[in-house]
Amino acid sequence: MITVLLFAHLQEEAGQDRLEMDLDEITIGDLKKELQQKFRLSQLDHVMVAINEEYALNDDKVKQGDVVAFIPPVSGG
């Protein structure tokens, strides 16, 4: 299982802030596609991803036990 965290508008679109997915060894890019289909999310091109609290790239792989956060462009400050 991997844990997926959603924030800001993604959280609202999906209707949840956290989900468990039975996946392993999947790239960020493919995981994005999965999620987009599952929740009809708006496009994720500008959404960053962090694996275990570190920013990651589309080609990086997620494995069992990882926490993957989908991070829309930030607007703190």
Partner: peptide, 14 residues
């Protein structure tokens, strides 16, 4: 610091 906060810190404003 404030410039970097606006670049890399995962905080969102509604």
């Amino acid at each position: 610091a404030i410039e970097r906060i606006k670049q890399i810190v995962p905080i969102w404003k509604k």
